[in-house]
Design a protein around this nucleic acid. Structure first.
Ligand SMILES: [Mn+2]
Ligand SMILES: [Mn+2]
Ligand SMILES: [Mn+2]
Ligand SMILES: [Mn+2]
Lengths: 219, 219
DNA sequence: GGCCTCATTTTGACTCCTCAAAATAAAATA
DNA sequence: TATTTTATTTTGAGGAGTCAAAATGAGGCC
């Protein structure tokens, strides 16, 4: 049985990894995990010894098939828990990430399967993040963000990729939650500002950094 | 923030302690926690250093006020989680103890309060064990067991004090679950056997050990 | 009192995860 | 190419929780 530390490292590597052969540097892992670089190096070596990652000294690290499988298992628990906390217990979407960060390690498969049933086998969590299936399949819909989508087109918010409670609260206050229809009214590339009009709410102006965190898809 | 190890020790001491000044021996703690005696001794010393228990070398250990408060907090989480798993997720009462043993350490107060709301502020868990209040108050109804109650009287099962799945499954199969009305038809002290008739089920004969685990109260 | 037995405590060691700080390799710059 | 900067790895150490095995204490028994 992997420790929660192992689960957290694997999940983090999965989330940072772009594509299957990309290498993640020790420095980035250390920052993401909130540890000193030496700690990351030594932990990664242990993961490599367990066959969960491939480690290239001074190059970086990537998940093996086994490591990815485990990471997806944790991610599935995390996202199902988040959705459950919102739908069944009525917590706000801005606070469930922190809760799920702990619960993902102590919830059994039996309980997770029951939660999945109760929720009707959902495909995305409250933030629009895809929920991996029990077999480890992820349905990653290709999406663009408010920072690079077409203007004056009918779009829908698909996903908000930031777990910061303050940002999430701002997003829902502005009407920018997954499922909502939006239209980009204007984009000032030089000024780095995007003006968005969510259906049934006032238009908002976002900076590029914020706009990149709101993923949208054609409506 | 106390570690799960600390929480488990405190909860265990609370459950074993009869009365406020009783001392629990190191040997008993070691057995209950599934560790070697030396481990219990050293762990108890750390708890004593944290002011959670009073430790009398070669005498035993008892909870301080602070230790009991923490133990009750854990027990509250444990029992609310058990009930939640049964009522909301539909798990069997025989399997929830093991699940709660893990979840009790990772569920936040916020989530526990929501669970408490959803369940309507229950006073007992699926096994009839009292759920401590958030302030640490326990409502311990005085009860007798099938091994020592009156015969031919209308009684009600109040509590089943054994977490062994096999025993719990046997109990529900026999119709002996909290809330059910029962009548003791006969008791053969020398033979160590009790014959019980649950309402709406066939009469069962229990040995003394089993009978002691079924607590009943006047109907 | 002296001895035996059993529970408890002590000692030394080990795993897991972490940090601080020194050593090293690689990359960037001059 | 030589030098400086930056990332990574190594080394040494510590806390938490555990075990194995030796030492100690307290009663009970002769
Ligand atoms: Mn986590
Ligand atoms: Mn999420
Ligand atoms: Mn526990
Ligand atoms: Mn219970």
């Amino acid at each position: 049985m992997p420790s929660s530390t192992v689960e957290n490292y694997l999940k983090q590597i999965y989330l940072m990894q772009q594509g299957d052969e990309a290498l993640i540097s020790m420095g980035h892992i250390a920052i993401a995990m909130g540890v000193v670089p030496g700690t990351a190096t030594s932990m990664i070596k242990t993961l490599a010894d367990s066959g969960l990652v491939e480690y290239e000294p001074r190059g970086g690290v990537r998940l093996t098939t086994g490591g990815r499988k485990l990471a997806l298992h944790v991610l599935r628990r995390h996202r199902l828990v988040e959705l459950f906390l919102v739908k069944v217990l009525g917590l706000d979407w801005s606070e469930v990430h922190a809760e799920a960060e702990e619960l993902e390690h102590s919830i059994s498969d039996k309980v997770i399967d029951r939660i999945d049933d109760v929720l009707g086998h959902p495909s995305v969590d409250p933030h629009g993040d895809p929920i991996p299936s029990a077999k480890g399949h992820v349905n990653d819909r290709p999406t663009m963000s408010l920072a690079n989508c077409e203007t004056e087109t009918s779009l829908r918010v698909a996903r908000v990729i930031d777990q910061d409670p303050a940002f999430l609260q701002f997003a829902s206050r502005s009407g920018l939650t997954p499922g909502v229809s939006v239209k980009v009214e204007s984009r000032e590339a030089v000024a780095g500002a995007v003006s968005v009009k969510p259906q049934g709410a006032k238009a908002v102006t976002l900076g590029t950094a914020a706009a990149q965190k709101i993923l949208v898809e054609p409506y």
